[in-house]
Nucleic acid binder design. Structure first.
Ligand code: FES
Ligand code: FES
Lengths: 141, 141
DNA sequence: CAAAAACTTGACTATTTTAGTCGGGTATAT
DNA sequence: ATATACCCGACTAAAATAGTCAAGTTTTTG
């Protein structure tokens, strides 16, 4: 049960922006250098963040990205959602008639995993980007 | 963020045992038929459950497996642990000096993922196998 | 004893997912 | 003009996953 790097880097990059932007756009190049994330990979990630309205872009020479919401209002779940990373610990969909094992009845553990999904998602729902910064600010210059 | 099938099938199979054993050993063949899980795959899973003392085996003709603890006392985390599925949402190890991005300092989001891991693990720590059955019993014959 | 049921074990493999890279754009400030 | 930085689809190497296979051993029962 691992988070993929895309989600992790997204959160990392947005946290970086929250720390280093002073109301101006932050370029991916800077984020890449500070956080040690491949620039090309960041581009791919920010494409989706932009499409899902988490950031907006400024093109041209002093361009970069800007957070749409303030870190206080940006839920971590918004970030994960932008990257299709809704937590779904098992493949079995709530809606579909078919259960995970192909049978028509739900498997014996179905409800349990549902409960787990809700539990984890609520963690991400209740955390804001600003919550990360509070804790890390002392350690990180 | 998905659970692998090994862990899911393990929980499923043990729940099956809890329901269908009447103090006698339950054969993998029966579990396989009831739950629709490949027998060969179950063998692989139970090997580990046995090594980690979650079940014990009875060989020979009316053999099978028996839960070591009662469902009331068997934590879901014990099951996951037996399958090396400790929840570790990011690759970065607590102990190691190296952080996830290869730098010597921990990344800006490190603490957050730590918190998440603890949160999720506590879910598994606090759930017992018997908790699954309570809920499912009505739905499942 | 023989045969069948059921556990034991390591190795092997196809498929899928992940974690990126690449190439060729377009917009804009100076 | 030109450098900087976003834009976007397609591609790929490597790792993880989900499972199979082969070749056993042990124990019960007829
Ligand atoms: S039927 Fe939903 S998890 Fe198995
Ligand atoms: S340094 Fe630990 S998660 Fe990045």
């Amino acid at each position: 049960m691992k988070l993929n790097t895309k989600s992790r880097y997204a959160v990392m990059a947005l946290a970086d922006m929250a720390v280093f932007s002073r109301n101006n756009a932050v370029s991916l190049r800077d984020i890449s250098l500070r956080q040690g994330i491949s620039l090309l990979y960041l581009e791919q990630i920010f494409l989706r963040l932009k499409k899902n309205n988490v950031v907006k872009s400024v093109r041209g020479i002093n361009g970069g990205y800007i957070l749409v919401k303030s870190p206080k209002d940006l839920k971590i779940s918004d970030i994960l959602l932008a990257l299709d990373q809704k937590v779904k610990t098992v493949g079995c969909k709530k809606e579909s008639k078919k259960s995970c094992n192909g049978k028509s009845t739900k498997c014996i553990t179905h409800h349990f995993w549902d409960e787990l999904d809700i539990y984890i998602n609520s963690f991400f729902e209740n955390k804001k980007l600003s919550d990360l910064l509070k804790i890390e600010r002392q350690e990180y210059k």
